[in-house]
Every structure is written in structure tokens, then in C-alpha cells.
């Protein structure tokens, strides 16, 4: 599909700047909120108007936009600037549809992120925003893969971003997405045997193209399926492996397990499809959010490069209904 070159990962861990994954940052108040990046490159007047998602994405993308040239920008985000959205909604209700300021409204459209990045870099090329909840990032990556198939000499900025705001937290809490008991470690999360997970947020940006030289890793294949049936997921995985891995072996299975007892059967069943392969989990690092798979892709690239792995299979599912597989190989 394509080669991944530079990356920037803004997460709850030390993944941006000096990377240190041994010094695990703790879960605070049952959340894993991203450590905000350096915003010096953003003009202060602009910075003040930005909601968290646009801010995280700008902080993550600017180092790449300032040093590389892209033919387009493709972002996956389930909710974009939901905080701005509810702020505007609250204005509507609280001021009974009176005279409202448009800033929150303009920032709330999910495409505000990709368009802000285009604006920063005067990028008039392809610009798209995928919002398909738990597969928003995968669809964005597939979009870029198609663009590179159509225009093999091009380079694209691919990103996944979602924010956790108080409003989002309220809605998801009511929906039963989060754990009620206190979670302060990976053990707590994965051994809980209860429903729900812990929320996280973050933004990961990838500079990608078809050039092998200098690449960190290669995204070999993406597969997605919507179903709540475990056997459909395992069947899909079996086909995915036969088609994309052939006879070669896997170095690592990176599992999106999130501590939610309702989702565990899918992860266990998929692990059983690739037995005797090392398994690692990542949600204790980034928390659960719709585009956490972008973090997983970054982690796979990091592990391939630093642990000298041949390949990594990422399996993630969102709410037990949207499943994705990404096969990442060394370049």
C-alpha cells in the first residue's frame, strides 16, 4: 500500500519529542489525556480560537508541514471538535437562539482540522475528512492508499485525531462506554472483568508515499468489517492473513483490547487465529477512542524500527461492531 516516513504522535505517553515508552505515564482520574504538544509555531490569535482536537492536530502536524511537501491532507476523526460543537449548542439553548458568535460553530465542523492544516501550509491539493466513527482513521488510510495508487509520485499527510472533552465524556458515560471503578494501571484495566474502558485522546500524523528509501515501515494492508459476530471477524481475519501474509510468520500481534468484557471475546478469538505469536496491548497507553488505531499504527512503526521486528498485525475493534486489521512490515 504505502511507506511511512516521518511520524508525530501526540498521546498520553512520551511519544512526541523525546520518546520514552518505558516511563509509562499513569492513568489520571480514569482518563488518558494526551500531553499537549508545543504550540510555539501557531500564531497566538489563532491558537486562542482552536478547540482541543484542532489544537492537538495542529501541534502534531506543523513539524511535518514545515519541513515536508505534501500533495494532500487526509484526516480521520470521529467527532472532530465536539467540544466547540457543544459550546455552540449551549449558546443556542442558554441564549435562546439570540445573537451568537460563530467561532465555535466554524471550529466545530469536523473538516475544520484538515482545512486548518491546508490553510497553515497553503496546501491546495486533495483534502478529505473521514468521520466513520471507529474506522475513521482506517478509511482515511485507505483513501491515501488509493491516492498513491492513482498518483505514485505523490506524498500525503495522513492523520488520526480525536479529543476527549467533558461533554464527550458525559455522553459516553451515559452510554456505558467507561468503567465506573477506579482504574490506575494496565493490570487494573485488563483484569477488571467489567464492562467499559477508559477514555483517551490524541493525534498521530504520518508522512506517507510510495518511496521505500528512508522509510520507517510499510503499511502492507488494511481490512475492515462491520459485524457483531465473533465468527465473522475470525473468518475475515483468516482470509486477510491468507491474502496478505501468505506463508510468512508474524512477529507481533498488537491487540486493541480495552478492558471491556464485552469486547474481549473478539480479541481472544483473533489471537487464537495466530497462535504462538507474541501479543502486546496498547490501550493502557493511549486509552480508548475512535481513532486509537492511528496510535497503534505509530506504535507498530516504532516497534518495527526499534525492536527490529519483521512485521506487526494490529487488530482493533470499536464498540464490538467496527473491526480493523492493519498489517505493518519493516521497510
Amino acid at each position: 500500500m504505502f511507506y511511512i516516513h516521518q511520524t508525530v504522535c501526540v498521546s498520553a505517553q512520551k511519544t512526541n519529542g523525546l520518546i520514552d515508552l518505558d516511563d509509562i505515564q499513569p492513568i489520571k482520574d480514569n482518563k488518558l489525556q494526551a500531553i499537549e504538544p508545543n504550540y510555539d509555531a501557531i500564531p497566538p490569535a489563532m491558537y486562542r480560537r482552536m478547540g482541543r482536537a484542532v489544537r492537538l492536530a495542529s501541534g502534531a502536524a506543523l513539524p511535518l508541514l514545515n519541513t515536508l511537501t505534501f500533495n494532500g491532507i487526509v484526516i480521520g476523526t470521529a467527532n472532530g471538535g465536539l467540544e466547540d460543537c457543544i459550546k455552540f449548542l449551549n449558546q443556542i439553548v442558554d441564549y435562546n437562539e439570540g445573537k451568537l458568535t460563530p467561532t465555535n460553530f466554524v471550529q466545530s465542523t469536523t473538516n475544520a482540522i484538515a482545512s486548518q492544516l491546508a490553510f497553515f501550509s497553503s496546501n491546495k491539493g486533495y483534502n478529505n475528512t473521514h468521520v466513520h466513527r471507529g474506522l475513521a482513521f482506517e478509511n482515511a488510510a485507505l483513501d491515501v492508499a488509493m491516492m498513491l495508487n492513482e498518483f505514485p509520485d505523490n506524498s500525503y499527510l495522513l492523520g488520526g485525531v480525536d479529543e476527549i472533552s467533558a461533554y464527550q465524556y458525559n455522553i459516553e458515560s451515559l452510554a456505558g462506554s467507561y468503567k465506573k471503578e477506579s482504574i490506575s494501571s494496565a493490570e487494573d484495566l485488563y483484569n477488571s472483568k467489567t464492562t467499559g474502558s477508559i477514555p483517551g485522546d490524541g493525534c498521530t500524523m504520518f508522512a506517507v508515499n510510495k518511496q521505500k528509501t528512508g522509510a520507517t515501515a510499510k503499511l502492507k494492508a488494511i481490512g475492515t468489517i462491520h459485524t457483531d459476530k465473533v465468527e465473522e471477524v475470525t473468518q475475515y481475519l483468516t482470509n486477510f492473513i491468507n491474502k496478505n501474509l501468505g506463508e510468512s510468520s508474524l512477529s507481533l500481534f498488537l491487540s486493541g483490547e480495552n478492558g471491556d468484557s464485552r469486547h474481549l471475546p473478539y480479541y481472544s478469538a483473533c489471537q487464537n487465529i495466530v497462535p504462538n505469536i507474541a501479543v502486546e496491548r496498547f490501550k493502557h497507553l493511549c486509552g480508548e477512542y475512535a481513532t486509537a488505531s492511528a496510535f497503534a499504527l505509530w506504535l507498530a512503526c516504532h516497534k518495527i524500527q526499534h525492536n527490529n521486528l519483521k512485521n506487526v498485525l494490529i487488530y482493533n475493534n470499536f464498540r464490538g461492531k467496527q473491526h480493523s486489521f492493519m498489517l505493518v512490515e519493516n521497510a
Binding site: T109, N128, V131
Partner: peptide, 26 residues
Amino acid sequence: YDGGSVTLAIQERYGMRGIINTINTA
């Protein structure tokens, strides 16, 4: 509430298995 919900409602109703996506560029 999210944009994806609209497409997911159709996907679920019909049990669609192919590539499913939702785009929002205003």
C-alpha cells in the same frame, strides 16, 4: 449524534459487509 451513526444505521439494518465509510467535508 456523530456523523458515522447515519451510515451505521443503514449498514446494520442491511448487514452490509463491504467497505463502509462516512465523509464530512461540510
